[in-house]
Amino acid sequence: MTQLIESTARGLYCAAGGFHIDPWQPVERAVITHAHGDHARPGSAHYLCAAPGLAVLRARLGEGASIQAVPYGEPIDMNGTRISLHPAGHVLGSAQVRIESRGETWVVSGDYKLEPDPTCAPFEPLACETFITESTFGLPIYRWGAPASVAASIEAWWRANAEEKRASVLFAYAFGKAQRILAGLDASIGPILVHGAVDAMNAAYRESGVALPETKLAIELEKGFDVSRALVVAPPSAQGSPWLKRFGDYSDAFASGWMAVRGQRRRLAVDQGFVLSDHADWPGLNRAIEATGARRVLVTHGYTAPLVQWLAERGYEAAAMQTRFEGEPGAEA
């Protein structure tokens, strides 16, 4: 088989089409799967993204960036290769990149998940010969519960704290995870406060037509505002910062796929861990791979080696592909 996409010093590169996908160094033409920092880096001359992701990508790259947005599924031609972007279900505007050249089809997954998410279009299975997949949670220990039950346990925690007159501080990745949590919440429990980093992404989501409950920017609270029933959504980097002082004797929690493992939960030393990820779990990875019908699977960031070996034992032509993508941020993010 030919190598339609290869990993180069600047990023994943499609020589036939003359473009890079999620390059980690500036290039001429960058196709962006989604606006997370490890996939969308500044400095390239021209960007292409899925239309629903335009506002969030702009928020990341700045007003000056040259960005072309195409609707999901609409093919465009680049040097005779046909490329199209399809929902990956990861975050708002996240896309898989489908590339067709001389009758051969490759799909680059970017980051993806199969669970429903009210803030973005659901993952679309695509048939292809070669599938390039992420593997952030590529071990059988990672199996997500139903998103609705996670949301219910977040609300139960918030409600219990509110009854004890303690603020609930929830650490979640500011782009994607935070909005996914906010979108489903029962806002009648108490006021919802957000950190500046979350607020900036909320604005981009609202601008893109995603409905979010009313939120207040925590630093703009009027004096004497009662935070005792509040839910505070903050990025993991806020953990331990003086910014949290304003919430008094709060209870804290962390929402991440890593919370599935007790040791990782305890290391963060928060009161609660909610297992919620925007990446595919083990059954999800396997289902997605199977649905492509691909014979060849190239595995990027995550538990690359075990997933490659697992797939190879199941008859796939599987190999690891080096990238500089980082997966779901953990404690230090």
Binding site: L139, P140, V261, G263, Y303, P306, W310
Partner: peptide, 27 residues
């Protein structure tokens, strides 16, 4: 769990506790 032993061991290495590994890998 329907996985080969080497993959179970890989999981065990990551989790660090047998009881927890079993609780997690089983459907």
């Amino acid at each position: 769990a329907g996985i080969p032993l080497w993959l179970f061991e890989e999981c065990f290495d990551n989790v660090g506790d047998l009881a927890e590994t079993i609780a997690l890998v089983l459907p």
